[in-house]
Amino acid sequence: MDSHDLDLDHDSVYDGLLGGDASQWAFGTDFEDPLAGVDTTIPAGVDGAVLAAYCLMLGDDALVYAHRLSEWTSNAPDLEDDIALANISLDLLGQARLLLARAAAADPSVVPVLPDGSPVPPEDALAFFRDESAFRNVRYVEAPNGDFGVTIARLLLFSTHRLALLQRLAASVDPVLAAIAAKGVKEVTYHRDYAGRWFVTLARGTEESRRRLVAGLATVWPMYAELTRCSDVEARAAEQAFGVDPATVGDEVDAVVEHVLATAGIERPDVPASGTGPLGRTGRHSEAMGRLLAEMQVVARAHPLGKW
């Protein structure tokens, strides 16, 4: 038997991607299932279809926001923030991968059907081969990045909300979702601290940085309300004790945001919430979503068999 020199194995950055079949490198790391070896049995009292729909919501929030944040790569104000935003994006992408895989395991019918012989694993099929109306992320995460002030304001509200959700989901009756959430808590804690610190820094910085932050907060504030509206799926997920009604974390999020605003010396924006009822959660997205998906999906869709 040939023996492997692990140092030589690492000589090419593509080796880890190639896996078994070098002709199909576009899809994956050959680590086919991020939930390999995890018991994905659906717990008693949980409806697999609702569990899948709920995991798509949490997973799509992470996936779409990860894509948006990745647009900062090579464009951030300085190298440290370039790397920070890319790392936050990577953490969210990892959460998305696990959540989409959980959705596919709970209800395989949510996964788009691909041509025979396609090597695309379920979580990639969900990410790259669903149409806009099948995505369940909130509109809040699909909106364009804007400047750094908008980005920091958006990240503060998003990560505060997601951290509160994940903390509760760590007690989900679905052990897989509970484990994904518990892991995510550690990551999102760093995201919230990053956003909170920059929020205070920009607020207390120059007139220009403060002006941009205030404008950024006014931009994202009306959209934030959507995160706290409970869709039918989330209500059923909460009833079945594997999910959380997002409205119930509102006060907790508000207390954290109030603390940041007070520290920063910034007034709570006096602007009404935009839209009513669940928007993105029912597949009704904004204009920005189509463009985002076009960029994210174009290569995968052109090559559904992963070879060219």
Binding site: D9, H10, D15, G16, L17, G19, T29, D30, F31, L90, D91, L92, L93, G94, Q95, R97, L98, I180, K183, G184, E187
Partner: peptide
Amino acid sequence: PTYSGCPAMATMRD
């Protein structure tokens, strides 16, 4: 996995 998105996992597995 150390972090959810850690790309080193695939290499560790291989």
